[in-house]
Design a protein around this nucleic acid. Structure first.
Lengths: 209, 209, 209, 209
DNA sequence: AATGAATGAGTCTTCATTCAT
DNA sequence: CATGAATGAAGACTCATTCAT
């Protein structure tokens, strides 16, 4: 009973199953069988839809990247205003969206990063993503800072975001989004001209002497 | 040609070979054969010395962690003075030491991080390392800041270091130590009380309007 | 050429191949490759069907045990009458049935016995089999003898059967079923009350003095 | 410090170690390393003394056979008298001597039997042993019975002994020597002319009707 | 005499992939 | 469209054996 239009559905089901396997046992346990079983399908199905294992993994990585893009876009669109500070905060928010801080997502990101070091295709996808974040941040910082400083601020904030995310992932506990946001916002405030910084509640205080 | 006292030598040769394989082809290509071949020995030798593959990988990870500890320690000991700012800079310096930013080291770190998500032993080692960095930073910040702010500054700087390191690794080009140091030092200066910050040459400048 | 419903067929083919290998070269030469080759299949097939080597061996042992049960049952059902003497003879007959005295069967039994000393699963199967034989014998002897004597007779006959079987196996020549039956039947006659024994033609004769 | 005359000592130590390994983990775990470790020596020592693994195992089997011969001989020599019945009992006693019913001995016998099916050298040793038992028994029975009957009695008693021994071994509990002796003695009494049998205390009793 | 370092062949097991149905 | 049987290559691990010291 061949059904028409099953392709996109099956694709999605298999990709979702892949993430569940990654979450449960890591990338090294992603076998075509385990994914097929997790998806409730037969062993040969993955090759049928994705050609081979790499095809599946690439599709999974593209999914993750798309999720991130959409999360960032969503926060930027729904931001209170278009000011650099608000937009920067929105970008940060998108990067720490639940879809990115779930255990499955965190494990997958790390796995893909690791894989990207030796897989040209993964590397391409991952670098495009890196550059997009940096360029978005640089654009917003650039609206208030000199280009050189804006680039540094963007590099710093991008690193801070990734670092917070990485340490959160490796910590083994649920991701502390609140702290991540606070530290990122502080960084933004400290780099944007002081008029904005005044609004920040969490400026660093000197120790009582 | 069996010689006595070869154990430590062979250990080191095999661990070095492991890093070379990781650098060339990634953790997933670390095979007992590939390591043995790289080391110019026979296939059974790894099990002979490390019990099994996990034993080898654990030894390799311990090596990396030890290298990092020693790099940090070295910079702290040889720092100009004991001031928080100098010591913080020394810690940063250690984390970006050549032994940590070589392609082999960067790939290995990423591989071990990824593996630590599903390997309890790796996770333990990695978390101990994370905590050491954070506690070192918190101690130095704590000499000038209130405890709460010191902890936040430590978390932020640790994240910034890891993030710079991570993005440098993924960038696929030689690591830009100079930039990493500059951005980290800026972070330190911006969190330590202003008397010290005045010395910083790279303060953020407002865009010429 | 994947066909549906091959499972039971393949199972049997592989078990048969296992027995052939045991017959030809002993249990220690039962290799997944050797079995697969003997069965005309590929190396990975055994794991596919039996999970692992132990699964195959256990299936083979179960087969042997089932064959014995069926041989005994067959002789008991087709026995001339239900008298203890006839039924005991039937049990003996079943134990020396051709399916149990073929070289393949004899080697396999010995191999499994040996293995059962260190393999709990094998030991369980083998002990259940031992107990069944003993309890069957004890039941029949019990119809004519006091319980204590019946148990002793059962133990003795079971031992005699196994011993004849064992020595026949180790002798290296074709199993002498006729002798085994005669000696076993004598044992039965000597333990059942004399009214039955009178029928026996092979009573022990005193040496002519 | 090379010592003279160590050879026989080392030989014995290694053979003893072999039996301990067989007792603990079965013949399949007898590796040159495990034996050497058990003997407190180095890995290469077995090859040094026995040439190769088969040499060790053959020496071990010879030891077991010698132990049996000596146990039988001991009981025959120290028997009360030279009557066939007493001598047959002595032979039985020897076969169930502690040195033969220890767990180590039982496991070793079974292992060697199994191995003898495919190892010509083992088969030779084992068959010589079988024949010796049978011929000893046949000689004693032959002093009272016609040759044909004596041979049958010998075959039956040999089988009974081996069967009792085998079932005792497989039972997994400590060997019940008392029962084995009683059943064997009964067999002897039932085959020797009745004048001797009258002495037997355990004649089979008819069930109370 | 004795050690133990080193080798390399052999075995079990896993898996991506193919393909007849 | 979908299944799952079958293959065969590759990897981890074991172990008998050799041999320089």
């Amino acid at each position: 009973m061949p059904k028409v239009g099953m392709q996109p559905v099956r694709h999605q089901q298999l990709i979702d199953a892949t993430f569940r396997v990654i979450e449960d046992s890591g990338l090294s346990d992603v076998t075509l069988s385990s994914v097929a079983t997790e998806a409730g399908m037969s062993a040969g199905i993955v090759s049928h839809y994705f050609g081979n294992k790499d095809g599946l993994l690439e599709a999974a990585m593209r999914q993750i990247l798309r999720d991130l893009r959409e999360a960032v876009l969503f926060h930027c669109i729904h931001a209170r205003d278009q000011s650099p500070r608000t937009q920067l905060r929105a970008i940060v928010h998108g990067n720490f969206a639940p879809s990115q801080t779930s255990p499955a997502a965190m494990r997958s990101w790390l796995a893909f990063w690791s894989a990207s070091l030796n897989n040209p295709q993964f590397k391409r996808l991952q670098r495009a993503n890196d550059r997009r974040l940096h360029s978005n941040l640089a654009y917003q910082f650039g609206r208030e800072l000199e280009r050189k400083n804006a680039l540094d601020a963007a590099t710093g904030l991008a690193a801070l975001i990734d670092g917070l995310w990485l340490r959160g992932t490796l910590a083994g506990e649920a991701f502390d989004s609140e702290q991540a946001l606070r530290l990122s916002f502080d960084f933004i405030d400290q780099h944007l001209p002081s008029s904005n910084r005044a609004l920040s509640a969490s400026s660093t205080k000197r120790k009582k002497s």
